[in-house]
């Protein structure tokens, strides 16, 4: 492993430990790692957006003009219009002129809405409605359809679930009697949906932790602990440095805990 790669991997391992230290309680290591992530992300995003947005979409297209003429002699001077609209967004910082920023915002929202409404309506409303209203394939229940019997029940569940779920959100009639029973089935269906989401979210969060274990073990410890690692000496230094910092922090925490406990014991008298 190259020294540079080794250094970055070690930094990654240290920052991983710093972030997980929050599980114990908020502390300076966590604060440092958190601020580093926010700072690096903001800087990275700014550079990425500059090089992939502004440069190719605006500056490159005005390139054949002269900047001291305001690029008005470029072969595509109309690209100055979105540039001006973009600049107007910065008037948000002035109390007096902040109203001007509504122009580019209104234009942006207008275009986005015009593009979005037909496609969103067609693909996220209509097609979902068609799927919910599709006919039930009764053949499947008797074993001679294209689905197996167990899967065939899902068609019934989807229909009942959709109707019951919609009825639960219908508040113009009191949820009593048969209507109330269907609404209750609706809330159970919703709860099953939320339960599935919760289960998958737990799996996702555990996955993040497992990936960190894999990183710490496979990408860092295994490589670093190999005596053939040309940076073995450096690894030893970093390992003991991190170990010392962790032990020092635990010792400080214990000291604070014991001190506070003594104070609490003295207080009643």
């Amino acid at each position: 492993m190259e020294f540079g790669t080794f250094l970055w991997t070690t930094l990654g391992a240290v920052l991983t430990l710093a972030i997980f230290s929050f599980l114990y309680k908020d502390n300076p290591f966590y604060k440092f790692a958190e601020h580093l992530v926010v700072g690096v992300s903001a800087g990275y995003w700014a550079v990425i957006l500059w090089h992939n947005g502004l440069v190719p979409n605006l500056l490159e297209r005005l390139r054949d003009g002269d900047w001291y003429l305001g690029w008005l002699n470029s072969s595509k001077p109309w690209y100055l219009i979105p540039a001006i609209l973009g600049l107007l967004m910065w008037t948000r910082f002035s109390k007096k002129y902040s109203w001007i920023s509504r122009w580019p915002i209104s234009m942006y929202i207008g275009i986005a809405t015009g593009v979005a409404i037909p496609l969103e309506m067609s693909n996220r409303v209509n097609k979902q409605l068609y799927a919910a209203m599709s006919k039930i394939h009764w053949d499947n229940f008797f074993g001679h359809g294209f689905l197996d019997t167990a899967a065939a029940y899902s068609e019934i569940i989807i229909i009942i679930g959709t109707i019951a779920g919609l009825i639960y959100f219908f508040f113009s009639k009191a949820h009593t009697g048969a209507f109330g029973t269907i609404a209750k089935i609706g809330i159970y269906i919703l709860m099953i949906g939320f339960g599935a989401s919760f289960g998958l979210t737990v799996m996702a969060r555990i996955s993040l932790f497992i990936q960190r274990i894999q990183f710490m073990h496979e990408d860092w410890a295994v490589v670093a602990f190999e005596e053939t690692n040309p940076n073995y000496g450096w690894f030893q230094f970093f390992f003991w440095l991190v170990g010392f910092i962790i032990i020092a922090y635990i010792a400080r925490e214990l000291y604070v805990y014991i001190k506070n406990r003594d104070k609490q014991m003295v207080k009643p008298s």
Partner: peptide
């Protein structure tokens, strides 16, 4: 991701 997991199953049912 797992967090998004339950959200996109309806698109499977609709054939999208």
């Amino acid at each position: 991701t797992g967090v998004m997991g339950a959200e996109y199953y309806p698109y499977l049912n609709s054939g999208q």
